[in-house]
Every structure is written in C-alpha cells, then in structure tokens.
C-alpha cells in the first residue's frame, strides 16, 4: 500500500534529483527501488518514462554514459 512506502516516485522527486546532479536511467532506478516505492518493475519503468518525457531534461554523455540533468 502507498502508506507503507517510504519513497514516492513523483515528478517533483525526479526533478529535485536531476537539478542536483546528472544521472543515468540506472541512477534514477536506484533512487526509486521497487521495494521502497511499492511499485512493480513495470509500473516503475512506465511512470519514470512519463515523468522524464514531461520534464524533458538536458542530456550529456559522461564516461560514455548518457546522463539527464535539469537546470533551475
């Protein structure tokens, strides 16, 4: 149930992470682990995809890996 989760996958939470520093998709998935949000893997991927499409973050390659970031 949502009340038992200690982490919520929301646009605001993703936005705050991406303003702080560039992150890969894997970095983001680590922040919103299914065991902490209570979401399934599929839900996590779908919700995160929708959020990233809305936020439309900047992208840059660091160490050959694509990172997302936002500026305030």
């Amino acid at each position: 149930t949502p009340s038992s989760s200690d982490v919520q996958l929301t646009e605001e939470a993703v936005r705050r992470y991406l303003i702080r520093k560039p992150m890969t998709t894997k970095d983001l998935l680590k922040k919103f682990q299914t065991k902490r949000t209570g979401l399934s893997s599929e839900q996590t991927v779908n919700v995160l995809a929708q959020i990233l499409k809305r936020l439309n973050p900047e992208r840059k390659n660091i160490n050959d890996k694509m990172h997302f970031y936002l500026t305030e």
């Binding site: 998709t25 894997k26 779908n46 995160l48 995809a49 990233l52 499409k53």
Partner: peptide, 20 residues
C-alpha cells in the same frame, strides 16, 4: 537485483528512445 535493474534501465531507455 542488479540484472533486474539492468533490464529496467534497458526498458526505460527503449521507451525514451522513441521520444528523444
């Protein structure tokens, strides 16, 4: 697990690639 995270990252990137 790590491999599940890899799979999720791959699925997420695949979904975003259509958009980017």
């Amino acid at each position: 697990s790590n491999s599940e995270e890899d799979e999720m990252a791959a699925a997420l990137e695949a979904e975003l690639n259509d958009f980017m």
